[in-house]
């Protein structure tokens, strides 16, 4: 018997559907603003060498207030210079690179660890769940900032260590979210169907369950990148961040925090930069949530 397959539209590939889902963000004004801010900073980071008016570690006139012209009159320190006479605008522009590299990368690592843990705990249940849940409870019961401070103060500060610390501290939270989603999804019919077909556990977890949990996870990832940016900033601010002299927003605030009451321009602009980037991710997350709740 010839079956007419013309009427059944071909199922689009998963990637395409995810991209289309993300494209829905244009329906949320808040989300679009968030995305615009993020794209702005990404462009700034990519084009840092072109748009920065001065080299970030070059010393000029110390403590110039914003809008001070250079000595030869050819340029302008738009946001002023710091105690060592380095141009603040150029340092902010170059500093965006570090945070935009490290924060998403660290979040990705945390997800790479947290997702398998959550899938295993939620799907396998039993002792696997008990052990993983206890471990994550132990780590989560620890005030998170305290954990970062102790880890970084002990093992020393480098990009790798910050990455590991973020992974260690965030993976349990991600595991908990994934586990909750899996507990709900594992009782769906398509999971039973896959089990009946005799598919192995890892296949069911990765191919049947995980793609269906992506919505809340994408929203969580956006929020989490924001947190990680704050964390990297806090570590820099507490003097536990990436080593100088290359600019790093948190570190810039820390370096001149004691002078921030008398020369606010040295700290105010890095503060605004980091806040705007975090705001971008938070608005994007809010927009994505709004759009995903709509349908």
């Amino acid at each position: 018997m010839a079956v007419d397959t013309q009427d059944v539209p071909r199922r689009e590939s998963g990637l395409l559907r995810t991209l289309k889902g993300i494209a829905l963000i244009r329906e949320s004004a808040v989300g679009v603003i968030g995305l615009t801010i993020i794209v702005f900073w990404v462009l700034v980071a990519l084009l840092a060498d072109v748009i920065a008016p001065f080299p970030p570690n070059q010393n000029y006139i110390p403590l110039a207030t914003p809008l001070t012209p250079t000595l030869d009159g050819s340029g302008m320190f738009w946001l002023g210079t710091d105690l060592q006479g380095r141009d603040i605008l150029s340092r902010i522009i170059h500093g965006s690179r570090k945070v935009l590299m490290l924060a998403p990368l660290a979040t990705l690592c945390a997800y790479a660890v947290g997702i398998p843990m959550g899938l295993a705990a939620g799907y396998k249940r039993g002792w696997v769940d008990d052990v993983l849940s206890f471990l994550s409870n132990v780590i989560l019961s620890f005030p998170i900032l305290v954990l970062y401070v102790i880890i970084i103060a002990t093992v020393g500060s480098s990009a790798i260590n910050i990455l590991l610390a973020v992974t260690f501290a965030s993976a349990p939270g991600i595991m908990r979210i994934v586990r909750g989603l899996v507990l709900d999804l594992r009782n769906r019919e398509y999971v039973f169907a896959a089990e009946t077909r005799g598919e192995p556990g890892w296949r069911i977890m990765l191919i049947e369950i995980l793609p269906n949990a992506r919505g809340p996870l994408i929203v969580d990832a956006c929020l989490r990148v924001g947190y990680v940016i704050i964390t990297i900033g806090v570590l820099g601010f507490l003097g536990l961040g990436l080593p100088p002299p290359d600019p790093d927003w948190g570190g810039m605030i820390n370096e001149f925090r004691v002078m921030s009451m008398s020369f606010p321009h040295m700290t105010v602009f890095p503060c605004l930069a980091i806040s705007s980037l975090v705001l971008g991710f938070n608005l994007l997350a809010d927009g994505l949530r709004e759009v995903s709740l709509r349908d």
């Binding site: 806090v234 948190g250 605030i253 606010p264 503060c271 980091i274 806040s275």
Partner: peptide, 12 residues
């Protein structure tokens, strides 16, 4: 979205 280490110098 304004971390404490940013709002502290700003408010200061």
């Amino acid at each position: 979205s304004i971390p404490e280490f940013a709002s502290a110098p700003l408010l200061g």
